[in-house]
Design a protein around this nucleic acid. Sequence first.
DNA 1: TAGGCCATCTGGTCCT
DNA 2: AGGACCAGATGGCCTA
Length: 403
Amino acid sequence: MAWVPARAVGIGVISQKERKETSGEQSARTGCGAMPTFPFHEPTVMPESQFGANFPRDLVAELRLRKQEPFPKAEPLPVPPERRTPEQDSDKDDGEDGAAEEEDADEGPPDEHGQPRRRGPRKKKGASKARLDRVKLRRMEANARERNRMHGLNNALDSLRRVVPCYSKTQKLSKIETLRLAKNYIWALSEILSSGRRPDLLSFVQTLCKGLSQPTTNLVAGCLQLNARAFVAEHSGGEAAAAAAAAALCARSPYDALYAPYPSPGAGGTPPGHHHHHPGAEGAKTFRSYGYCGGGAYEAFYESASPECASPQLEAPHSPPVNFNGIFALKHEDAGDLAKNCPYGVRYCAVPSRAGLSQSAVFRASSSSSSSSSSSDARFSYDVHVRGQAYPTQDDLSAAFHN
DNA sequence: TAGGCCATCTGGTCCT
DNA sequence: AGGACCAGATGGCCTA
């Protein structure tokens, strides 16, 4: 059985085409066609806000419009009870003035014989209409709140898109892919944290792409591939040039410090004199640079990783997260330079190496990172400190991840 | 044109 | 009572 379309029975339904006409807003989205009612002005997501404060601008116009032009009557199609609108229900089982409306229902056309219709009090038309208006208003308020809520949700999702690998403003990840990638990313970072070892590039990419759709996998891989190639080309020009390029690449990430607490498993890791001390974690440790950068590194996913990343369309990235789920915190001290870089900083600088990858991967993971970023702390200052709470074991993480 | 993705509406449920 | 949250339904846009 086919339900009656909401448009046919709804009291607050406005088609997207109508909405487009009334609001005049163009969709900000590039990848899909749905038309937002209005640009969401975040972060004005105030759950406790009252109707009016957050009321969408065009909804007022809607209300006005509705008063002038009543919503088209529902087509006389059978409506399942669970899909009936309060408006419709009010014709039947209204507790307040149900009697009056029942009378309305019973009230047929005038008897041609001139017989009196029915006795009893006159129907309170005004009250019924007012009630209908109230119902409509409540419904529209609820719709507006729901829109706001969803906009807030989407806004949060956008924020998430910016901090997961492969952010592209022009080619946005879908919601589900964003969540999946974020989950993989968190898991990968957690694994690094708990193990204290850096994974090889292939493992990292595989972890990131776990469960992702093929297009998204290609996107993530493509981000790396571009940079790997660029770096390989650079590298072929000479070791010195490669080292310089790597150092330059590695100097720009605001997340470099993310890996600081962990010694590089490579030969050198951090050159002498490049131990990072994090004032935010006084008394805790003096960390060495993780050493993804330098001679053995893969290029970041993020840094000009995707073509859009370097495009002028790239909006200024958001600050990195302050708190990673209670595991560690980043104290953002200088966001100014972030705008010059992609906001992601887990740096895997590419270098040709002996490690061959599968047919789908063209990257080379280095097993000998001999140097590290020498200037990662020059432009970005983040305190990274491990919090005291217990970590989940790697097994727990694995279990959670594979679930 | 089918399928994916999305925004929106809607009614139900739960909570304050 | 009203708001938040949720899931289902619907229709629009885009892409392969």
